[in-house]
Design a binder for these strands. Structure first.
Lengths: 199, 199
DNA sequence: TTCAATCAGTACCGATCGGTACAGAATTGA
DNA sequence: TCAATTCTGTACCGATCGGTACTGATTGAA
């Protein structure tokens, strides 16, 4: 343990609170006053712990995506289950996430994607979004490629389009959650979306 | 013609430019300096013509949706065409819109929906978003209800879920356009999305 | 017990925010 | 020609923006 006064707040806990603030207000819509008020700390403490607003945001988005990645596990976990059943479990999990009452509606990644491109959005944020999306796309493409060879998809299926389609459904669910759609409504929509698959 | 000095700029043209600024940067991310720079006018002129930032934004979003409404015409226009063909034309039009090189990527309505809820977003904006979404939903539901009775949809189809699904696809296309997906990629995804319909 | 290190909190920085007062230029009707 | 009216442009308002200098409190090591 190094010398010096100990930090009076839990850094991980503060990051979680920061995630919620950005999730609610977006990057441009969040001020340092919003953050320090929610985290219960002063600005110098925030800067010492996280750098600046941009670095705090990228750390928050990174941490958020780290947790979001766990939702993808059910795509492969009961590997003997039919693909359609696994996708249903996955999409229902997404619905539960974007309609969770403990968090802002929708998905921080989708929200930030829509906010990106503007003058006030740092390039580092845009790069992080691109990397995350690329990672999701390749992961899903590889999954569907494997499923195609296992006979879980019709022959001749264009796996890349299916992967993009699944991402589209996820994004769409997030937007509709922001529009106030209920958990049950969105699960009904997810059922429709899965009709593209046989079974 | 009333007395007084004439306005040195075209109000409609200025509103179009304002739409593009908000479309690029969002509501919170757009400053009055951004607006006056893009419109080529001074702040007092902007305030005299449009009220304030909030009123200018609602006017911009309203005008944007007015134009967007024309895209819905092809859903009913060649009423003898199969529903699936009309939906394909419609979705391809959406793809062309969200990937248009002359405009920011994506859809202003989806972007604003994702931005809504934060502290800096006026209640009037949220209300406008809600009204627009509600109008789209009822319009689509009525369309699919009619198509169901005309035999263009399988018996027992839950038309409300289909309407929500179509909105989901539209939103998803917008998000993916922001992610840099090309016109051709998105049309491929739209084709997949239409596979839920027979034919 | 002393010292260097690290934190918290106040108070402040220049820049920018949304919005406006005011003076001068242009236009119309009388 | 002249007054009433409506615009443009400058210059400014208080508030807030992201970010920091500085003082004092707290800690571990010597």
């Amino acid at each position: 343990m190094n010398a010096g006064r100990k930090r009076a707040f839990d850094k991980e806990e503060a990051l979680t609170k920061a995630i919620h603030v950005f999730w609610e207000n977006g990057y441009s819509g969040t001020s340092l006053t919003d953050l320090t008020a929610a985290l219960g700390i002063n600005k110098p403490s925030l800067y010492a712990a996280f750098g600046n607003k941009e670095q705090l945001f990228t750390a928050a988005l990174d941490h958020y995506m780290e947790e979001a990645r766990t939702k993808f596990l059910c795509l492969t976990d009961p590997s003997d289950a039919p693909l359609k059943a696994r996708l249903k479990t996955f999409l229902y999990g997404i619905v539960d996430g974007v309609t969770d009452c403990e968090s802002p509606k929708g998905c921080l990644f989708v929200k930030t994607t829509c906010e990106s491109g503007g003058v006030g959005i740092p390039e580092e944020v845009t790069a992080l979004l691109r990397d995350v999306e690329q990672e999701m796309e390749t992961e899903l493409t590889e999954l569907f490629e494997a499923e195609l060879q296992r006979g879980q998809l019709p022959e001749g299926t264009q796996v890349k389009n299916i992967a993009l389609y699944l991402q589209l459904v996820m994004s769409g669910l997030s937007v509709q959650a922001k529009q106030g759609k209920s958990n049950e409504e969105l699960k009904g929509v997810a059922d429709i979306a899965l009709q593209i698959l046989p079974g």
